[in-house]
Simulated assay, not measured.
Amino acid sequence: MPLASPDKIVIEKSPAYFHNKDVPARIKQLNPKMKIILVVRDPVIRAISDYTQTLSKRKYKVLHPSFEKMALNWSNADATSTSIVNSHWGAIKVGIYHKHLKRWLQHFPPDQIHIVDGEKLITSPAAEVNQVEKFLGLKPVVKPEDFAIDPHKHFPCVRAKGELHCLGATKGRKHPKVQVKVLQKLADFFEPHNLEFFKMINRKFYWSPERNVSLIH
């Protein structure tokens, strides 16, 4: 972590921290009063986004397996069951939020962990940022007019000093169109895990197969 004066707040982020088994204990050792911000979204969409990001780094994209082939165990005879989902694939494992959060709660109390609704961060960014400001002990200053929607990527852009700052080329990529039956199998697989997560944080996010389909077209 960089050096900072008492009147400064240092924020460091990485998508790998949440599911890495060793990180919670190491962060607690660094600073047991550390405040943790966790951004979650529909795990089905998160898996598709993960796949899209990985695919973008491949030189020969046509040789890379489709999302459907990665997400499901097609050799599984019981194709009507959620057991056909490839739960060993990293893109799926990361979305089982309650298993990862359980490790964090072994090292940090709930009041030091703030959960951000990733879907609302897109549709109502100011409201979600205001909650983060309060969590960090800051006076909320961010307003809805500080954001605008990118007409191409449909993600929020930040308005600062009269200029819009939008996501770079490596963010907000268009997702591949995924078969509806595969989306449904994934939604069915994640449903009990989502409920366990909601129970753990005493909140509920409204994730559904219908929303999954609408987001990938």
Score class of each variant (00 low, 15 high):
residue 3 L to Y: 15
residue 4 A to N: 14
residue 12 E to D: 08
residue 13 K to R: 06
residue 14 S to I: 03
residue 20 N to Y: 08
residue 21 K to V: 15
residue 22 D to M: 15
residue 23 V to R: 09
residue 24 P to S: 06
residue 25 A to K: 15
residue 25 A to P: 07
residue 26 R to S: 14
residue 27 I to E: 08
residue 30 L to Y: 14
residue 31 N to W: 06
residue 31 N to D: 10
residue 31 N to Q: 07
residue 32 P to M: 04
residue 34 M to D: 09
residue 37 I to W: 04
residue 38 L to F: 14
residue 40 V to L: 09
residue 43 P to I: 00
residue 47 A to K: 05
residue 48 I to W: 05
residue 49 S to R: 01
residue 56 S to K: 12
residue 56 S to I: 03
residue 57 K to E: 11
residue 62 V to C: 15
residue 62 V to G: 10
residue 63 L to M: 13
residue 69 K to R: 11
residue 79 A to Q: 14
residue 85 V to T: 00
residue 96 I to V: 07
residue 97 Y to P: 00
residue 98 H to Q: 11
residue 99 K to E: 13
residue 104 W to Q: 06
residue 106 Q to E: 13
residue 106 Q to K: 12
residue 107 H to A: 07
residue 108 F to L: 01
residue 114 H to R: 07
residue 115 I to Q: 02
residue 117 D to T: 02
residue 117 D to L: 03
residue 119 E to V: 11
residue 119 E to F: 09
residue 122 I to R: 12
residue 122 I to P: 05
residue 122 I to K: 12
residue 123 T to V: 09
residue 124 S to K: 14
residue 125 P to R: 01
residue 127 A to D: 11
residue 127 A to K: 11
residue 129 V to K: 00
residue 130 N to G: 04
residue 131 Q to C: 07
residue 132 V to F: 00
residue 134 K to D: 01
residue 135 F to S: 01
residue 136 L to Y: 01
residue 140 P to N: 01
residue 141 V to E: 14
residue 146 D to G: 01
residue 147 F to E: 03
residue 150 D to P: 05
residue 151 P to M: 02
residue 153 K to F: 01
residue 162 G to F: 06
residue 162 G to R: 04
residue 167 L to K: 13
residue 168 G to C: 02
residue 169 A to M: 12
residue 172 G to D: 03
residue 172 G to A: 00
residue 172 G to Q: 02
residue 174 K to Y: 09
residue 177 K to M: 10
residue 179 Q to M: 12
residue 179 Q to E: 14
residue 180 V to S: 14
residue 180 V to Y: 13
residue 184 Q to V: 08
residue 185 K to T: 07
residue 190 F to M: 03
residue 190 F to T: 04
residue 198 F to V: 02
residue 199 K to P: 04
residue 201 I to S: 00
residue 204 K to R: 11
residue 207 W to C: 01
residue 207 W to Y: 07
residue 210 E to K: 12
residue 213 V to D: 09
